[in-house]
Design a protein around this nucleic acid. Structure first.
Lengths: 142, 142
DNA sequence: TATTGTTATACTCTATAACTATA
DNA sequence: TATAGTTATAGAGTATAACAATA
């Protein structure tokens, strides 16, 4: 099958295909933990921003309040995150649980392995270059 | 909000975020045509591989037969693609329609514009470098 | 009035499994 | 037996709109 020169030329398409490739590896690596890459990303953000609220978490992940709530529900059901009283009575302060702390390092280690394996075609330099370029794309405001 | 050093370091996460950014631009640009980036990709593949069947289309897009059929249904409903008799009685030969040919160029032009606009932070060189690295990731077999 | 969390609902995308007709 | 298409169904993931409590 011929991908066609238009698709070859479109950055968005190449990005989508690469994301699919990496995402499949990542999902497979995290499946034994009953968690997805997006949920682990949410857990890491909660750990690194203790006391943050659901709306802020959603903004960091580019999903809305309602979707953020479902992510938090999934993480609390697995005893990885807790909702504690927030800065006012409307707001939840999100915190990683002790159990979450116990398990997060191995999850990250597995994800890291999958990440490296999926991009094994790249040298260390190329990998760093690619990360820098991907970050640079997002410097433009939406 | 602090993304945290683990997320910063994971290629898969940076890829996901960049894909989201580009994808949002692309979806907005194609919305007036009633089509999504994935469907336009399918249409381009059909155009560039006339007579291909649904299973092959699915493989090119990394979705299964059933999902490929739904893509083809959507494209035929919009009179962009036709199912013609294939190499045997089980198989469809997919072809772009005359109407599809009439409309595809403007769709690609709009997608192209959105693609460029979303990655405006990159120089021409950086863009080419990024595309080469993204393609290289996928050279490893799954 | 605006914001936070929540609920209900719906839509898109995708996968699995089973069916049919062909090979 | 294997393959191509199809159908029915289910599961993620996300969005919108409306509501209650609070600011």
């Amino acid at each position: 099958m011929n991908e066609g020169k238009e698709l070859q030329r479109l950055l968005g398409f190449q990005l989508l295909m690469a994301e699919l490739h990496m995402g499949n590896h990542a999902r497979a690596a995290l499946a034994p933990f009953g968690i997805t890459p997006a949920k682990l990303a949410a857990l890491l953000i909660v750990r690194d921003n203790p006391g943050c609220d659901q709306t802020a978490l959603g903004q960091a992940l580019h999903v809305n309040r309602s979707s953020a709530m479902k992510l938090v529900n999934a993480l609390t059901e697995r005893d990885l995150v807790e909702r504690q009283p927030g800065r006012d009575l409307r707001t939840n302060a999100l915190h990683i649980t002790a159990g979450g702390r116990d398990r997060i390092d191995e999850m990250v280690r597995c994800l890291d392995e999958a990440d490296q394996a999926a991009a094994v075609a790249l040298s260390t330099d190329e990998r760093l270059q690619l990360m820098a370029l991907l970050r640079k794309i997002r410097t433009v405001r939406d």
